[in-house]
Design a protein around this nucleic acid. Structure first.
Lengths: 331, 331
DNA sequence: GTGAAAGCGCTAACAC
DNA sequence: GTGTTAGCGCTTTCAC
């Protein structure tokens, strides 16, 4: 911040007072400002190449016009899309966005919440690593920092997430309609709300159809976890479809099936969840459910900006693919 | 920034002056401060749950202790890793990181450079969309904002990038050593320096081996582009290996080969560049070259922090995979 | 060893 | 319509 020219320099150059320059800068000139004065100021700003110092504005306004985004991992496409969503609405309103990556560590997460507090952000879009430290969040809200949780359910806090339950239920119903009957489910980690919701959606659809799951196991959202669980399931049981709680595990399941000489989708139907773009490179193309990460980010950012406290659950979209097909003969 | 307690409150509570509190806050107490005074202040800070206001510190210090990162697309894994690298060194030094996403648009890029200027960041890690606006960069450096270009060569600016030339040359040599002879190359977009360097590395290795390329075409770094170019090449020429300038195009080439009934690696060797993690989900596993995005980010951030102006080219790593194998009979 | 005072660059009452 | 003034919360000489 080796800034030379200040608002005083502009004022002097234009032959007005700093307040007048400030008024032009902040668009409070519409009403009663002599057009020629405004012109003159604008010209001076341009000529001197003046840029206001944000730190001073923030200090004086006692508002940072900045939002924080705190996510577990920016290199995860889902979170980077969410971040882009927040950023897009923030930028449009002249807000800065501070992106913080907790690296899936609770300590780092706390450190970043402190950091965002000292930065004085007006609000935070928060994707907690696990169950968030509610006392810490309370400290923030006490100081006037609004917090919106994205992609997770946290009691007592405004939450924007996707309809993981409904999406999973619809996906399961879709597979049932295609004629799959012996369905195994590879869930995500047990403590993650999205994983719980997706599993609950699966169970709900199965119950409605009057069928019991062939197997339900808890995985880790990783390729390897999908591969290993699918291998185990296929070795022990007669199963005609595997639904995984995310695409990565679903791709693992496809590989496991192939390695056992099973054909997808003829011998085994496979479905995932997330709709990660590069899954399109895997063949057969995955049947999955799209989760609107970008839209979740936008909605969260929007709420932070307009002060609304309403939670929102966004719909997901079923994406049919070649890993599921109508069964020729139904049992 | 609805902050209540200020440094004055802490001072009053501890029965000292604001300056003394400030000294404790900034670690200038090592020399000559009465330990008991310090204790008292620390206790007050804790009791009042005081957090310094960054905006005021910045205004007063005339230093933001913040770095900017300006990249074309945060949802591209390569750039998000690079960002993480910058962020890791910045965070360790108490610096904030402002991440800006130009969305591959030159206009947005300029807007963000302006924005970062007004934020007063101390330095910027810049991955330009195309040829950057050097006048704009000059404006920044004139005002004391240091700019380091990452992942691109830009004349006259400090640059941190990967050894794309060497990596590509070594990869090509590796394929030649395996016995591949009729090699086609699918390059990236013509104006991108990384694409140019990788192509140059390929040509250099071929020349050294005394062989002419079977084909060289310019692609778009996309899956489809890899698929289409590979299809065309395989239809017209007798080729025993295809090297693509990135993994996405290489996977496209594998699919194209499969769709023509060719077996990879027996009928056709395929290699890529980048080493994107999800390529591990594709089989056969890709022979590729790892580009150290995270390390590039770290080095760029480090230079910004320690004021060094040295450019640096980081080595790449050859990652052998199943898409290339020793030829049984060499021509 | 610690305090008093000035001021970073800006905005918003309040004057006129 | 525009100028004057008083800080926002902090750091940093300079006193003592």
């Amino acid at each position: 911040m080796e800034q030379r020219i200040s608002i005083r320099d502009v004022a002097a150059h234009a032959g007005v007072s700093p307040s007048t320059v400030s008024r032009v800068l902040n668009g409070q000139d519409a009403d009663h400002m002599r057009p020629e004065t405004k012109e003159r100021i604008l010209a001076s700003i341009k000529e001197l190449d003046y840029t206001p110092v944000r730190a001073a504005q923030r200090l004086r306004r006692r508002k940072t016009q900045a939002l924080g985004v705190l996510i577990p991992d920016i290199s995860n496409l889902y979170f980077s899309l969410l971040t882009r969503g927040v950023e897009s609405v923030a930028f449009a309103e002249g807000y800065s966005t501070l992106v913080c990556d907790s690296n899936h560590e609770a300590d780092r997460e706390s450190a970043y919440l402190d950091f965002l507090l000292s930065e004085g952000v007006d609000g935070i879009v928060f994707v907690p690593v696990g169950r968030p430290d509610l006392d810490l969040v309370q400290r923030l809200t006490d100081r006037g920092v609004r917090v919106i949780v994205a992609d997770r359910r946290v009691d007592g806090l405004t939450t924007i997430d996707a309809d993981n339950f409904g999406g999973s239920r619809d996906l399961t119903t879709y597979l049932l309609d295609l004629g799959y009957r012996e369905m195994a489910y590879i869930a995500g980690p047990e403590e993650v709300s999205t994983a719980e919701d997706r599993l609950a959606g699966f169970r709900s659809a199965m119950k409605t159809a009057g069928r019991a799951p062939a197997a339900v196991v808890w995985g880790q959202f990783t390729f390897q976890s999908g591969y290993d669980h699918a291998s185990a399931i296929l070795g022990r049981r007669s199963v005609d479809a595997v639904i995984a709680a995310n695409d990565l595990m679903a791709i693992g399941a496809i590989r496991a099936a192939e390695d056992r000489g099973l054909s997808v989708p003829d011998d085994l139907g496979v479905a995932g969840f997330d709709h990660v773009p590069w899954a399109a490179l895997v063949r057969p193309q995955l049947t999955t459910v799209e989760v609107p990460a970008y839209a979740i980010g936008q909605e969260a950012g929007r709420r932070l900006l307009d002060g609304s406290e309403d939670s929102l659950r966004l719909p997901t979209t079923l994406i049919p693919g070649g890993t599921c097909a109508r069964r020729r003969r139904t049992k």
